[in-house]
Simulated assay, not measured.
Amino acid sequence: MKKVVSLLALVMLLNGCDDGNLTQEDINFEDIPTQSCSINNIIYKLKDEESLLLEIPETSFTNEPSTVGEPTLLDINSANRVVYRFYNGTVSATNICETIPPATPIVTDQWSAIAGKIQIFTTAVKTTNATDNSTKITGYNHNIVFKNITFAKNNGTQVYETFPFGDYVTTANALPFLFDQTVEQCSASKQIYNYNSSEALLLDIDPSLIVNSATPLNTPRTGLIGTTVNKLTYRLFSGLLTSGYFCTGTIPSTPTVSEEWVATSGVSNVSGIIEVTTTTLGTGFKHVIVLKNVTMKKGTNDFKLGDSFIYGELLTTN
Rank of each mutant, 00 (worst) to 15 (best):
T316M: 08
Q191G: 11
T90S: 07
F309I: 04
N129R: 09
E184N: 15
G306T: 01
S243A: 14
T162E: 15
N77V: 02
S189L: 15
D204Y: 11
S265A: 12
V267R: 05
L209G: 03
L52D: 00
F309P: 00
L236M: 05
G272I: 03
V83Q: 13
G272L: 05
M1A: 15
L305W: 00
I114L: 09
S243T: 14
T138C: 04
N218Y: 12
T99N: 13
G156D: 09
K47Q: 12
E260L: 07
S66R: 00
S208E: 10
D302F: 15
G69H: 01
P57M: 00
I273N: 00
T295R: 08
I43W: 02
N155A: 13
T67W: 07
D19H: 13
K45T: 10
T59S: 15
I192D: 03
M296C: 06
N318Q: 13
E49T: 14
I114K: 14
L8E: 11
D31F: 10
M1W: 11
G16R: 06
S38P: 00
T104Q: 12
T280I: 14
I32K: 10
Y84A: 05
Q119L: 10
I106R: 04
L314T: 03
Y87F: 15
R85V: 05
Q35M: 06
N212F: 12
G266S: 09
P102T: 11
P220S: 01
V4K: 13
I210D: 09
L52F: 12
L53Y: 03
L53N: 08
S92R: 10
K3G: 00
D180H: 07
Y160N: 06
K304E: 15
T256Y: 05
V288C: 03
D206E: 14
K147N: 15
N95R: 03
N88K: 04
K45E: 05
L232S: 07
D204V: 03
L291F: 01
A124L: 06
A174E: 13
L10D: 05
L74F: 01
V290H: 05
G244P: 09
T150A: 07
P71M: 02
K286L: 14
E58T: 14
D19S: 14
G266K: 04
G89K: 10
K136V: 14
I273A: 01
T242D: 10
L22M: 03
T248C: 08
K190G: 02
F61W: 09
S271G: 04
K45H: 06
T242W: 09
G20N: 02
P176Y: 04
K304G: 08
L241H: 02
S238T: 15
L314F: 10
E313W: 08
N15Q: 12
S112P: 07
I120P: 02
T278L: 01
D109L: 08
E259I: 04
C186S: 10
P33L: 08
D109S: 14
V276G: 04
I42W: 00
D26C: 07
P105M: 02
G166M: 03
T182L: 12
T280F: 09
L175R: 04
N154I: 11
P71W: 01
T242L: 09
G299H: 02
N148Y: 07
L281E: 14
